[in-house]
């Protein structure tokens, strides 16, 4: 497909910069601000677009592992969340990004429910172990999230940011205390 999506967005960006932005009333500060944010957002989307599918699939695999790990910690064992449909989804020959994203959001809710169960359990040990599992998952996930939104310029540790392409090879720097 030509132009590909990133290329098409690049042409849109060029037109905005060359034609549309100069035509905006320079005294309309609100319009100026939003126009510049639109341009900056488009630049960021162009950086993200080729990696968006991999982002969801990678998170899906990580969330399956996290659900399993937390389930194995909880006592009494919770009714095991059925993830067979999610695993089947990942095995499909044609995989739509929206379907994976929907599965991820469902698994994130499952994790939250399991965390609540751990917090409600007597004593502190289960909650401590679940905390470690979540922190280990988030170590990788948040660094990947940060790589994707680095273009906003908000990150206070830019020296630790990795390129988006490299964010899929990230591994846990610390285990969240897990042993």
């Amino acid at each position: 497909m030509v132009p590909d999506i990133a290329e098409r967005l690049t042409t849109i960006l060029g037109s905005l910069l060359d034609v549309v932005l100069p035509a905006i009333d320079p005294h309309s500060s609100a319009a100026q601000e939003q126009a510049h944010l639109t341009v900056a957002s488009l630049r960021m989307v162009i950086q993200q677009i080729d990696y968006a599918h991999a982002f969801e699939v990678t998170d899906c695999r990580a969330l399956i592992s996290l659900v399993r790990e937390i389930s194995s910690i909880l006592e009494p064992a919770p009714a095991t969340p059925d993830l067979s449909d999610v695993e089947a989804l990942l095995g499909r020959p044609v995989l739509f990004t929206g379907d994976v994203r929907a599965a991820n959001r469902r698994m994130r809710d499952i994790v939250a429910t399991l965390v609540e169960e751990a917090a409600a359990a007597a004593g502190t040990e289960q909650f401590r172990r679940v905390t470690q599992a979540v922190l280990a998952y988030e170590d990788v996930q948040i660094r990947r999230d940060r790589a994707f939104v680095a273009g906003t310029g908000f990150d206070v540790e830019p020296e630790t940011l990795v390129p988006i392409a490299d964010s899929f090879a990230l591994t846990t720097l610390d285990s969240g205390g897990a042993k």
Binding site: L37, L135, I142, R146, V149, T152, F154, V156
Partner: peptide, 22 residues
């Protein structure tokens, strides 16, 4: 567009929160 832009600030915040929780 500003709302989706400042959403990008959420991830450095999550990173800081994770460090505190650790």
């Amino acid at each position: 567009v500003l709302m989706s832009w400042v959403g990008g600030l959420g991830y450095p915040f999550l990173s800081a929160l994770r460090r505190m929780m650790l």
